[in-house]
Amino acid sequence: MDIYTMIHNSVKNFQNKLKKDIITNENVSSAIAAELTIVSTILISSILLRRINVMLTVLIILGLGLYLITNMPLISKLKKEQDDSLNKMMFYVILTLGILVSVVYWGVL
């Protein structure tokens, strides 16, 4: 399956993924816009890694780009992760605290 078909199929999938809300043109088009925004901003911001190592950046961007495109639609997954349930919020809060403290503590030593 070529990449174009994959993207095309994923756009079609939006309607199924957005079942909860009423489907309107606006909802689908804004979901597609969100999808494109997230892919492009993540790819552009990963260029920032060039300050650490250029070759590593090239590899990461290629890998990340492939990963993001093959896993479309991302936005429904992201939305599921960011709902209002306390347990999910708490999970990410503790995860961030743990990663932050360990990176700060061990990353520099």
Binding site: K20, D83, D84, S85, L86, N87
Partner: peptide
């Protein structure tokens, strides 16, 4: 129960 009343409101 937190999972009942503080779950996703949507």
């Amino acid at each position: 129960s937190a999972s009942e009343i503080l779950g996703d409101s949507n």
